[in-house]
């Protein structure tokens, strides 16, 4: 069952007054950065510290330039989807310029693209092929801020680092997750995969990415109480 599309955060329904206020603001304000979003991609992600926890993700992507993309990530594509995080995507050229300590937070995209897991819903494959060719060579850094998969009604805890699906061991995505997605969009990930066999595999995937593959380690973010550097009392 598609449980994630039925969960809504707790709270009273929107009042008519609030609807009017929102409509009014929308008419008066330009929302320019939001209008830059140019594609919707559906794929999967795995928690870096526990790759048995896997989620379906919906990326709304905007482009800063040919080499850098920024994505707002939601847990579904419906209007009430929950905003669960942010992913940044960079070309291999930019990735190679990052310091090694930074690189270990990133994941590669080649498998995700080649395996058909990354799809652009409602867009014919042939239209997105050129973009997929670019994406196969990119790396991503995805921070999840709302662990809806464990049933969190509200965003709880520090952000978590997410990894991409990979073709080996812990990186494999659960077949039931893929089947549910495929059924919803009436697509076949397997067919996508065979249609993408001719997409060139990157010649080199930096082993500092997908850190778990080489090191068997994941990452967590801890939050510690410290003395704040201040210019006035707080709070």
């Amino acid at each position: 069952m598609d449980k994630h599309s039925e969960q809504v955060p707790p709270g009273k329904a929107m009042s008519m007054e609030q609807h009017m206020l929102d409509k009014g603001a929308q008419m008066l304000q330009s929302l320019t950065p939001i209008n830059q979003m140019s594609q919707h991609a559906c794929t999967f992600a795995l928690y870096s510290h526990d790759m048995s926890r896997q989620i379906e993700t919906h990326h709304y992507v905007s482009r800063l330039n040919q080499d850098v993309l920024q994505c707002a990530v939601y847990d579904s594509d419906n209007a009430h989807a929950r905003l669960i995080g942010v992913e940044y995507i960079v070309s291999d050229t930019i990735f190679e310029s990052l310091p090694p300590d930074e690189q270990k937070l990133w994941h590669s995209h080649a498998y995700e693209i080649k395996s058909g897991l990354w799809v652009n819903p409602r867009i014919p494959e042939m239209v997105v092929k050129p973009e997929l060719k670019n994406l196969a060579k990119t790396y991503g850094k995805f921070w999840c801020t709302w662990q809806t998969d464990r049933g969190d009604k509200l965003p709880m805890g520090p952000p978590t680092l997410m990894m991409s699906p990979q073709g080996v061991s812990m990186g494999l995505v659960r077949p039931d997750l893929v089947a549910a997605r495929d059924a919803r969009y009436n697509i076949s990930t397997a067919a996508m995969k065979s249609g993408r066999t001719e997409l060139a595999e990157p010649e080199w995937i930096n082993p500092q990415a997908d850190y778990w593959k080489q090191h068997g380690k994941g990452f967590v973010v801890d939050v510690q109480p410290v003395e704040m550097k201040k210019i006035a009392p707080f709070p």
Binding site: H49, D50, M51, S52, P158, S169, M170, W212, G216, K217, G218, F219, V220, V221, D222, V223, Q224, P225, V226, E227, M228, K229, F234, P235
Partner: peptide, 21 residues
């Protein structure tokens, strides 16, 4: 307890063993 509970908050990265099957 809001506003950091009156303290500053700092995030730190920790490497952990991957939970495997």
């Amino acid at each position: 307890m809001a506003n950091g509970g009156g303290r500053g908050l700092k995030t730190v990265l920790k490497e952990v063993e991957c939970k495997t099957a």
